[in-house]
Nucleic acid binder design. Structure first.
Length: 490
RNA sequence: GGUUCCUUGGCCGAGUGGCUAGGCACCGGUCUGCAAAACCGUCUACGGCGGUUCGAAUCCGCCAGGAACCUCCA
């Protein structure tokens, strides 16, 4: 596979050339959502970032198995009185079966992802469907001597692990600091050290979601699902593990410890983390209560929103920043993205209508290469987009008649645009329903515009302006070109 | 308190030693019957103070401000 894709590896803290373990296949695991609420803007970041990677790897010719889990069990809540998990708590509040809550929010999540044009992963495994695998994983860690049982629960022995391996290698922490900074948690007294983490928790009698195990009737620990499902579907060694930066510690650090303890080797080659989306400079998050759900963006129904923003605007907004930078939400920034996206997509549309000339006065050569280079530099989508904008200017110039393009260049430009805008960046014009009603409606508008054109020819400005203004009032945008008219419904 | 990171023009956002992206907004011009759209142009920044260097937004130090993680979190 001939390419120079470099990705930033959190493990080494530098960009590394991507060399897959197997020549033609890539295994990629990304931490998915905990389905106990609607997805917010923050959830769009990893989904879009790793969708971009998924698409780009496929473009490079790899066969990619992309696993994104659904967390539907096992995440303890710190403020819950008895270590109740989030799904169970939500279920009790809404008088629903836990699985009903999961299904409800999962359906909504998947619909939202589809709207954002995020490709479905190859496998979306549920934590609750892999309890057996998780129990087996605990057994392996225990057999290797890195876990101990205490009152029906099983904990990971961090101190022992750290003697043979490096606990903290991903997050840059050291075990002594952790001793001083780890907070009080439920069941602390059962653990040997405060930084030990649960692999299996014994459930209290009122706990709803629990399963039998050799140690107790209980539920798997915080970090186990990803280790168990990742290795089940991608093997004991796989290429890429992604997620939000807020998962580096403890989640991913613990995953590394678990997998290394159980399997005796490094499981993941490249760790990738997207940065946070902020609102007023602070992380948008569930616990802070400062989140805006994606549906609220699409509908414009949140009080912080001046208007609705389409899924493609959100996608473009996310892609206009490199994934390792924070992105601050603001209406101003979103509106800038909205207009920028419009410019890009209109350029793409105009490109389809261009006619070739004998020679080119625009420079098309190198565009593909520049875009590829940007993507290969740790998925620098903002740079790739900036190159496409440069090309849009050329397209508009040709469209206005003050530049020309030859057959060969036109073909190349069309190919590059289709490849980057649609296949790689996953941007697409808002879906137009293709049916006879739609065709008839379009013809009717064209007819009106033809009448307006005739009026203009006769210098009947009253009639031509009336048509333009009335259409504008209905939400149509009319753009006069040199010898054609474009229109769209806003 | 510990660890890590950030600070770019009106706004967003790239850029890791010289060639100073891109988008949005603003202003001026071209085009247009007038607009809109499009095109051209203007404005041209790197938190502060030192240092390294022929040369720093880019490297080093200090200071200021902010963030993430240390608890579930994308």
């Amino acid at each position: 596979m001939e390419h120079k894709l470099n990705i930033y590896n959190t493990l080494s803290r530098k960009k590394e050339l991507f060399v897959p373990i197997h020549e033609k296949n890539v295994g990629m695991y990304v931490c998915g959502p905990t389905v106990y609420g609607d997805a917010h803007l923050g959830h769009a970041r990893p989904a879009i970032t790793f969708d971009l990677l998924f698409r780009y790897l496929k473009h490079l010719g790899y066969k990619v198995r992309y696993v994104r889990n659904i967390t539907d069990v096992g995440h303890l809540e710190n403020d819950a009185d008895s270590g109740e998990d989030k799904i169970a708590k939500k279920a009790r509040l809404e008088q629903l079966e836990p699985m009903e809550v999961v299904q409800y929010y999962l359906n909504r999540y998947q619909k939202t992802m589809e709207e954002l044009n995020v490709l479905p992963p190859s496998i979306e495994p549920h934590a609750s469907g892999h309890i057996i695998e998780q129990i087996e994983f605990v057994k392996k860690i225990k057999d290797a001597g890195f876990a101990y049982e205490s009152k029906g629960s099983v904990y990971f022995d961090v101190e022992k692990y750290n003697k043979e391996h490096n606990y903290g290698k991903l997050s840059g922490r050291n075990i002594d600091d952790l001793l001083e900074t780890t907070r009080e948690l439920d069941g602390q007294e059962e653990k040997r050290k405060s930084f030990d983490f649960a692999l299996w928790k014994k459930a209290s009698s009122e706990h709803i979601m629990k399963w039998p195990s050799p140690w107790s009737e209980g539920f798997p620990g915080w970090h186990l699902e990803c280790s168990a499902m990742g290795t089940k579907y991608l093997g004991e060694e796989f290429d890429i593990h992604g997620g939000g930066m807020d998962l580096v510690f403890p989640h991913h650090e613990c995953e590394i410890a678990q997998s290394t303890a159980a399997l005796g080797k490094e499981t993941v080659k490249y760790w990738m983390h997207n940065n946070m989306i902020t609102i007023n400079g602070q992380k948008m998050g569930k616990s802070l209560g400062n989140f805006i759900t994606l549906d609220e963006f699409f509908e414009g129904t949140h009080s912080s929103l001046e208007k609705a923003y389409s899924p493609m605007t959100i996608r473009f907004f996310v892609l206009q920043a490199q994934y390792r930078s924070t992105v601050d939400f603001s209406n101003e920034a979103l509106q800038a993205s909205e207009k920028g996206l419009q410019r890009l997509l209109e350029g793409y549309e105009r490109l389809q209508k261009l006619t070739a000339s004998a020679s080119s006065t625009v420079d098309v050569k190198g565009l593909r290469e520049r875009c590829e280079k940007a993507m290969q530099d740790d998925l620098n989508s903002p740079i790739a987009i900036s190159h496409l904008f440069d090309a849009v200017t050329s397209i508009n110039t040709i469209s206005a008649g003050s530049a020309t393009i030859n057959e060969e260049d036109l073909l190349e430009l069309k190919e590059v645009f289709s490849l980057f805008i649609e296949d790689i960046l996953g941007l697409q014009a808002e879906l137009e329903t293709q049916n006879s009603t739609n065709d008839a409606y379009k013809s009717a508008i064209d007819l009106l515009l033809q009448i307006r054109q005739d009026a203009k020819t006769n210098k009947d400005w009253a009639t031509s302006d009336k048509i333009r203004n009335e259409l504008a009032a209905l939400g149509f945008e009319i753009k006069d070109g040199k010898d054609n008219v474009e229109w769209n419904l806003k």
